[in-house]
């Protein structure tokens, strides 16, 4: 079990996604790149509006259009560029190879279809099975996520929030996906249910050997679930690395600030340390470092150029000028 298949199966290259509204262009995702190995969990962390969900929708080519548009970049799944695929080819990928668990389970299920039908729908779409077989498989899926199969014919309004999220998970995992994207799967649930749902997800992920892209702003969830972490700020990945690298060897001032703003139960502090200021307006991003205005370690040079992404050692990437000199010493 421990032997990791380290082949890269998903590669995102220079992805740019904009929302073109009447009030200007919102630059939601700016030139982000990352790779995922089979079986690994990558967490995308960042504040609201950092472009995490847009990135995820981009992977499924489901960015609402209009106003959203994928401007540039490549998304390679097993070497094939998803952005070059026809709508029909993309429909075959969605729901079978790449699936998604959405943020709000309350609204993610069709209120007038039975939960069983909603699960068997995806099974029928991607497998050559009869109606009865699909229903049987849907029942198995329900059992897997911890819902009795007898509830196949029930409607979403007869379920609690946590149960609904389990149904959404069942839909996402029904066709044995290669990549499971989960967009803040627990932020709409209360804390006790969060733990249960995360547990179910982790368990099934191991059982099905699915890779997972976890979108969250909960660093606790990240620590529990991820192999790698990408920290997003204003549509860019500002720090990327293995969980250990990012958590124990934090480099970027923004990541550091995120950790500093967490409460620490070992220390007796009156107030938490917030990150001062607000994220920059994504419709008018500066042409220098986008974190400059809030950065505590800013330098004169930071206002002059947009920093390049640097490898500070062993695949640990940081987009900050502070480490420009360090990199030169590496070389």
């Amino acid at each position: 079990m421990k032997t990791k298949d380290t082949t890269v199966f998903l590669e995102v290259k220079n992805l740019v996604i904009h929302y073109e509204t009447d009030n200007g262009v919102v630059e939601a995702v700016n030139n982000i790149s990352f790779k995922m190995n089979r079986g690994e969990t990558l967490s995308l962390v960042g504040e609201t509006g950092a472009g995490k969900t847009t990135t995820a929708l981009g992977l499924l080519n489901l960015v609402p259009n209009p106003p959203g548009r994928i401007i540039a970049g490549e998304i390679l799944l097993n070497g094939e560029n998803l952005l070059k695929m026809s709508p029909h080819q993309m429909q075959k990928i969605r729901g079978s190879k790449i699936t998604m668990i959405f943020q709000d389970p309350m609204t993610s299920l069709n209120p007038i279809e039975t939960v069983g039908d909603q699960i068997s729908e995806v099974i029928k779409l991607h497998n050559k099975v009869s109606r009865a077989e699909a229903a049987q498989m849907a029942c198995d899926m329900l059992e897997k996520v911890g819902i009795p199969a007898e509830r196949y014919g029930d409607y979403p309004h007869q379920f609690s929030g946590g149960m609904k999220q389990r149904v959404v998970i069942a839909i996402a995992l029904a066709c044995d996906p290669e990549l499971l994207i989960s967009d803040e799967p627990t932020s709409a649930l209360d804390v006790t249910i969060q733990a249960q749902v995360l547990d179910t997800m982790r368990h099934l992920k191991q059982e099905l050997k699915t890779s997972m892209l976890m979108i969250t702003h909960d660093l606790g969830v990240v620590a529990e679930t991820s192999d790698n972490v990408a920290v997003m700020y204003a549509g860019e990945i500002v720090e990327y690395g293995a969980l250990r690298q990012v958590f124990k060897d934090t480099r970027h001032p923004y990541t550091q600030a995120l950790f500093d703003s967490l409460p620490d139960i070992n220390k007796n502090v009156e107030r938490l340390i917030p990150i001062k200021g607000l994220t920059p307006d994504p419709s008018s991003l500066p042409n220098y470092c986008s974190f400059y205005d809030r950065c505590t370690k800013r330098m004169e040079e930071c206002r002059k150029t947009d920093p390049a992404v640097l490898d500070v050692g062993d695949g640990h990437l940081v987009k900050c000028l502070l480490f420009a000199s360090e990199r030169s010493s590496h070389e």
């Binding site: 489901l62 429909q91 699936t99 998604m100 069709n110 729908e121 995806v122 991607h126």
Partner: peptide
């Protein structure tokens, strides 16, 4: 609505 996005994410035809 979100459930329409869910349906699309399942790979359902438009």
């Amino acid at each position: 609505q979100d459930y329409i996005r869910t349906a699309r994410a399942k790979g359902q035809v438009e």
